[in-house]
């Protein structure tokens, strides 16, 4: 895949939103099994608007048991940032890709080199949850110079003044954390989700997506009452860990797609 045009992620999501779609961004852990890039392709074919590709880290403090296990398994299978990005480069998903990792992976690679490796391998955006606003500059400078869109997270406890800054400095979309906590499946959508999305929408016209705990198509529909879209991770990775094929993951993503399209 060639270097994405700068701003592809946000432009694509805005266009889809303008066309009336609710945005669906599934997640796959890079390197999780020999067929993980087929999973990525199946997600795209099933109607994903963008795809998050996890670059696993040994100590994922924001992640619950499912993504922890997925990360650990991928690392045991030899996943490295370079191998994952090389594999991504060979795929033509047709939708923007967003790398999701932790700051030490970026820091070790070198800000500029890591940003360059993303854009050079067809990845449009990056999510690095353990870089708060105060520590953002070195990465943001590198990302901007390489045309990588950095998606920032906001949490239910984030006060309004920080929320405004997060919305201003986030590119691609703004990621609202639906509930205080870590990633992982939940029985129901947290009450904080709708409030989170509403607060973000009041600050920005960038696409606002909710993530963390979106486990079923019904949750996704409920979240999209306020948000422009959702990120779905653990619910899909649990299936993959349980042995689902790329086609089966594709079907699960299609289930979310259909529910969102039906409203």
């Amino acid at each position: 895949m060639s270097v994405p045009e700068p701003g592809f992620l946000e432009r694509h999501l805005r266009e889809r939103r303008a066309a009336g779609a609710k945005l669906l961004v599934p997640y796959v852990t890079g390197g999780l099994g020999p067929r993980w890039t087929e999973v990525l392709e199946a997600m795209a074919a099933a109607g994903a608007d963008a795809i998050e590709v996890g670059i696993p880290f040994s100590d994922p403090v924001m992640d619950g048991p499912t993504i922890q296990e997925a990360s650990q398994r991928a690392l045991e299978l030899g996943a490295t940032p370079t191998a994952i990005l090389d594999a991504v480069d060979a795929v033509d998903a047709g939708v923007p890709l967003v790398a999701m990792t932790y700051y030490n992976i970026v820091y070790r690679g070198g800000h500029r080199r890591f940003a360059h490796a993303l854009s050079g391998n067809g990845v449009s955006g990056a999510i690095v949850p353990d870089i708060p606003l105060e520590e953002l500059d070195p990465w943001a400078r590198a990302a901007e110079s390489e045309g990588v869109e950095t998606v920032l997270l906001a949490a239910p406890v984030t006060p309004d003044d920080r929320l405004a800054l997060i919305c201003e400095r986030s590119h691609g979309f703004v990621y609202g954390v639906s509930a205080m906590g870590i990633t992982g499946e939940r029985q129901s959508l947290a009450a904080s989700a709708g409030v989170m999305a509403k607060r973000l929408k009041a600050h920005t016209d960038k696409p606002v997506l909710l993530g963390f705990g979106i486990s079923t198509p019904a949750h996704a529909v409920e979240a999209c009452a306020e948000a422009d879209g959702v990120v779905v991770a653990s619910a899909l990775m649990r299936r993959l860990l349980d042995g689902a094929s790329p086609d089966q993951i594709g079907s699960a993503v299609a289930g979310f797609r259909q529910a969102l399209d039906a409203g």
């Binding site: 949850p129 353990d130 708060p132 606003l133 006060p159 920080r162 997060i166 205080m180």
Partner: peptide, 12 residues
């Protein structure tokens, strides 16, 4: 040093 944490923990 510094403070490298998710936004959710910054206020705390």
């Amino acid at each position: 040093g510094g403070r490298f944490l998710p936004e959710a923990l910054v206020p705390a």
